[in-house]
Simulated assay, not measured.
Amino acid sequence: MSYFESLLIRFLIVCHPQLVDDSLFIFERSDEAFSIYRELLERGVKEYAAYDLAIAVLFDEL
């Protein structure tokens, strides 16, 4: 389980328990967040800024 996946699941347990069992949603959202994070780091964006943007993607519209 990835860091972003774990973070999303913990958030869903508290705020959106109806989504906790939606493994496709969790996988896709956490994979997208990790991809953004990795891509930004490869482009030279500072780690904290890449993290902030990845978190924004992870929790978008939640």
Rank of each mutant, 00 (worst) to 15 (best):
E47R: 11
V45H: 05
E39H: 09
L24H: 14
S35V: 06
V14L: 13
Y51M: 04
P17N: 08
F59Y: 07
S2Y: 10
G44P: 05
R43P: 04
S30I: 00
Y48F: 10
L41M: 06
Y51Q: 05
F4P: 00
L53P: 03
L53E: 15
P17T: 09
S35W: 09
V20G: 00
E47G: 06
K46V: 07
I13A: 13
I26H: 12
Q18P: 02
S35K: 13
F11A: 07
E5K: 04
A56E: 15
A49T: 10
F25A: 00
A54Q: 00
K46A: 12
L62E: 15
K46Q: 13
R29M: 01
I9K: 15
S6A: 11
E39C: 05
Q18A: 12
S23D: 15
D52N: 12
L19N: 09
A50E: 01
Y37I: 03
L62C: 12
S2E: 14
K46L: 10
V45L: 11
E28S: 10
Y3V: 03
Y51S: 06
S6F: 01
M1F: 08
A33K: 00
L7Q: 09
S2W: 11
D21C: 08
F4Y: 01
H16R: 08
I26Q: 05
L53N: 13
Y37Q: 05
V57N: 05
E39W: 04
L40D: 02
V45I: 13
G44M: 07
I13V: 15
Y3L: 08
L58S: 01
E5Y: 01
L40E: 02
R43L: 11
E28R: 07
V20R: 07
C15A: 11
S30F: 00
L41I: 11
R10V: 05
Y51D: 04
D21L: 06
F25M: 04
F34L: 14
A49R: 15
R43C: 09
E32C: 03
F4I: 03
L58T: 01
E39R: 08
V45E: 14
R38H: 10
V14M: 12
E42C: 07
E5V: 00
L24C: 11
E47F: 05
V14H: 10
S2F: 09
Y48N: 14
D22L: 07
L12A: 07
R38K: 13
L40S: 01
D60A: 12
D21Q: 12
E61N: 12
D22K: 10
L53T: 12
E39D: 11
E32T: 08
S23K: 15
S30D: 01
D60T: 04
E61S: 13
E61A: 11
F27A: 14
D22C: 07
S23L: 12
F11P: 00
L53G: 08
L40P: 02
A50D: 02
E47V: 06
A49L: 10
H16I: 02
A50Y: 00
I9Y: 06
V14Y: 09
I26F: 12
